[in-house]
Amino acid sequence: MSTILSLQNISKRYGAVQALSGVSFDIPTNCVFGILGPNGSGKTTLLGIVTDVLKADTGSFTLMDESPSALQRRKIGTLLETPNFYHYLSGYRNLQIVANIKQQSEADIPRVLELAGLTARQHSAFKTYSLGMKQRLAIAAALLGDPQVLILDEPANGLDPVGIAEVRNLIRQLAHSGKTIIMASHLLDEVEKVCTHVAILRKGQLLGSGPVNVVVARDNFIEIGSADNRALAQLIQQHPAFVQLLPAGDGLLQVTFKDAMDPATLNSWCAQQGVWLSHLQMSRKSLETAFLELTNN
């Protein structure tokens, strides 16, 4: 199995709104795949089509190299949008229903409840849960039967900072254990910390997909400063690997080079040219900045 999910030309329209237009990309096995996009970009619609709660107008997809069916969905742990459970049943009884639909043993329920930190409240009715607990139950349901593939749509929704950190750690642990995780999120910080691959959507159109650093080019840059920044600016533009110079604020210069630049080499080169650096720091464009540049253009 080389690809978990392969989308071919998926389009979906809601009345006047084109939610997805001709989206195609592949999700390889054993990766943490982030589907990124601002609110309303089509992330949940895309996952809804993959999980058969929505029907695509055109296009097709395969799940685990086969045409999609309930059989594949049973092997995928999915948390889509909001936690959907029977309000009058307890957390445990809700998981019993999920286990039976997935045709998994009910013996796995205590393990996932413990993972989600809900053991103490497992016999309380779902309607008495806080938003965070509801989200945790949905995560527990997705983990039932220890699936090899997880689809998580905004998994940190409704969680407090501790909960968000816990979910992030859990996703990392799951990824380390060789699972494929497909995660939709608009929280770039979250994605930056866990994803290996991304697909970026804007207004239903795919802007790019693949490994994070390929899709969202984030060149290394170096912040430098000296007593005479004007002289430094003139000098640095003569460096053989020079690409771009931007003011970085605080009287510093932000310089991008063609190749990875070793700070010691740069420092030495400047000194040889008679300019002594008072500030030298390697930096990297944040995913957020890169993402905003990509989605605004």
């Binding site: 999980t51 059989l71 969905r73 999915t78 639909i101």
Partner: peptide
């Protein structure tokens, strides 16, 4: 209608029922 109110009709499909189920 409980299923529609709680959106569990969606969840049943997501978890591995066919729509015909």
């Amino acid at each position: 209608t409980n299923e529609f109110t709680y959106k569990t009709h969606r969840q049943n499909i997501i978890d591995g029922w066919e729509r015909r189920d």
